[in-house]
């Protein structure tokens, strides 16, 4: 019998530590598949964040670095400047990219660094137990917004992708989601675009991925996908932003 479905070469054949129904595993796989398709595994350098994906380098089979919480784009900037012949990308959560690391994010984008950013928006701080993230929806209950996020006390969900799109240094931004097979396919082609841009020296490219966190949302895996479809994508509309 002919084998037509393989695990990507860019992924180690090991189980992940992610919760059932978590989006991180899917996003890791999409990145790995695209790196295989583009034939760039041997020149790719990935930057893992501090967040639930902290040990992404145990799953990806290419060179990787840790970065301190929020500093992935500073680390990536330097690696790419030192080794422009390599393909360098960061993989960051919403707390990492849009709270503690906002400054690094904005300035790397504004410098137009020729980098690829995979931005996992799960509307919470997953790793530390589900606190409010900058992306938490109004009314969403978290362990630090017990009565739900309140605009007066906590401000509004931060649309960092739309903010970054204002910067002339930014080449490409697209928001995608993992809530259905069709959306996963769209996510994959956006990720491909973001890596191709770097190969073509086009400049800063970011893909924001709405990603389920059943554990911190207190929902089943299926309910989590529906919650993205029914609530999250209303606040964070899908599609090409720039």
């Amino acid at each position: 019998m002919e084998k037509i479905f393989f695990p990507p070469e860019s992924l180690y054949d090991v189980p992940t530590h992610y919760c059932p129904g978590c989006g991180h595993g899917i996003a890791h796989r999409l990145v790995a598949e695209i790196i295989d398709q583009l034939g760039i595994r041997e020149k790719t350098i990935g930057i893992a964040p501090v967040g639930c994906a902290v040990i992404a380098y145990d799953y990806w089979k290419f060179d990787c670095s840790e970065a301190a919480h929020g500093r992935a784009l500073a680390v990536a900037t330097a690696i790419k400047r030192v080794r422009p012949q390599n393909i360098v990308f960061t993989y960051q959560g919403d707390g990492d990219l849009a709270a503690i690391g906002t400054n690094e994010t904005i300035h790397a984008a504004n410098r137009g660094e020729n980098l690829t950013v995979i931005f996992i928006n799960n509307a919470v701080y997953g790793m530390t137990g589900g606190q409010m993230a900058p992306t938490t929806l109004l009314g969403q209950k978290t362990s630090t917004t017990l009565d739900g996020r309140d605009r007066q006390k906590h401000g509004y969900p931060l649309k960092i992708s739309e903010m970054l799109a204002l910067l002339p240094g930014v080449h490409y931004i697209e928001r995608v989601s993992l809530h259905s097979p069709q959306e996963v396919l769209k996510a994959k082609s956006a990720i491909r675009q973001a890596f191709e841009n770097q190969i073509n020296n086009a400049g800063f490219s970011l893909v924001e991925i709405l990603s389920p966190c059943p554990t911190c949302w207190g929902l089943s895996p299926k309910e989590s996908l529906d919650w993205i479809r029914d609530h999250m994508q209303k606040e964070f509309p899908l599609g090409r932003i720039k």
Binding site: I45, A67, R71, A74, V75, A78, I79, R81, V82, N86
Partner: peptide
């Protein structure tokens, strides 16, 4: 953190 990255490379 840029120094960290450059050194890592």
């Amino acid at each position: 953190n840029m120094v960290y990255g450059a050194s890592a490379a």
